Simulated scan of single mutants.
Amino acid sequence: MGIVVPLEGERGKQNAVATLQALVAEDMENVNDFIRARMASDVPMIPELASHLINSGGKRLRPMLTLASAQLCAYQGADHIKLAATVEFMHTATLLHDDVVDESDLRRGRKTARLLWGNQASVLVGDFLLGRAFKLMVETGSLRALDILSNAAAVIAEGEVMQLAAAKNTATTEDAYLKVIAAKTAALFAAAAEIGAVISGKDGAEAAALESYGRNLGIAFQLIDDALDYSGEKDKLGKNVGDDFREGKITLPIVLAYRRGDEEERAFWQRCLQEGDQREEDLPHALHLLAKHRAIEDTVKRARHYGEMAQDALGIFPDGNIKQALSDLIDFCIERAH
């Protein structure tokens, strides 16, 4: 049983993703067609494995950010389709690599590609998708967009390495952890939003605002994921509650509970996470400690803080359906129950 954390205000915002999907529906259909075409290969395993993940029911938030930001900046053209597909390829590649590094068995409720095809195939198909992504970037002819997305790819890889270095390290500080997720998760959110302004010729205040929106949204999104690992439901999470604990992952709830605990509690976290010595009764005790130190609640509070910064970043744009949908998306990401 996970910790129940009230995520207020979800009612009325739960259709935020559907609203945004409707606003970019025509463009997203073109993006999906583009993805299917560019995923093709003479090597049958490549489209088969990539399709397993791309068609697994993800919300496609990142490419939608590119399409929505282009609309917000009144873009006229077709390059936003290629760039949105680029963003989805990059995201899919990182998921394939993540599942190998984390030795994950489930992704969105389905067996991971690494479990079905093996680690080597997952890594190599991820590399193929990154190659496709860079080819699409070049095709747009926008050096600035290429710069933003290629930099994001490097930053994401840095975040993965930082996370690997901090793995099972209970001494990880909150600042160090936030630095990891800013690179590993938020960098692609930020780039996806920023490039919509860049290709619209608004590589100034608007691009900076959308980069800030995406970055802060990405951090909030990841913090809520961290909270939900201990407070959600398996069928909604697409993974088992407490998987982060079982895998020895150091996330913000653990960082907070560890710092706030006494010597005996810290010894518990060290045994379970650093030493990997876990017993059947340890997860319930971990949930007790997280509740005792309000670690889940405070993780949600941190997420709301970043959500407020994302809201403020939208302030320079005129009111309209797209702006409202992007605003509601922040609330959805923070208040979602799954």
Rank of each mutant, 00 (worst) to 15 (best):
A18P: 05
T19V: 15
Q21A: 15
V24M: 03
A25V: 02
E26P: 07
N30Y: 12
F34N: 11
F34D: 11
A37V: 11
R38Y: 13
A40K: 08
D42V: 06
I46S: 02
S51I: 01
N55T: 10
G57L: 01
G58C: 03
G58D: 04
L61V: 13
T66Y: 06
A68L: 04
A68C: 05
A68S: 11
S69Y: 01
A74H: 14
Y75C: 00
Q76K: 09
H80V: 00
I81K: 01
L83K: 12
L83H: 13
T86E: 11
V87P: 03
E88H: 08
M90W: 06
M90V: 15
H91D: 12
T92A: 08
T92S: 12
T92F: 07
T94E: 07
H97C: 05
H97D: 08
D98I: 08
D98E: 10
D99V: 09
D99G: 09
V101N: 08
V101T: 11
V101G: 07
V101M: 15
V101I: 15
E103I: 10
S104N: 06
L106C: 06
R107A: 07
R108F: 05
R108H: 07
R108P: 02
G109W: 06
R110S: 12
K111D: 14
L115R: 15
G118Y: 08
N119H: 05
A121D: 14
A121M: 10
A121P: 01
V123Y: 00
F128N: 06
L130C: 03
G131Q: 03
G131F: 03
A133H: 09
F134M: 12
K135L: 15
L136A: 15
M137Y: 12
V138A: 15
E139Q: 15
G141P: 10
G141W: 07
G141I: 09
S142R: 10
L143P: 09
L143S: 12
L143K: 11
L143Y: 11
I148A: 08
I148P: 01
A154F: 15
A157L: 13
A157G: 13
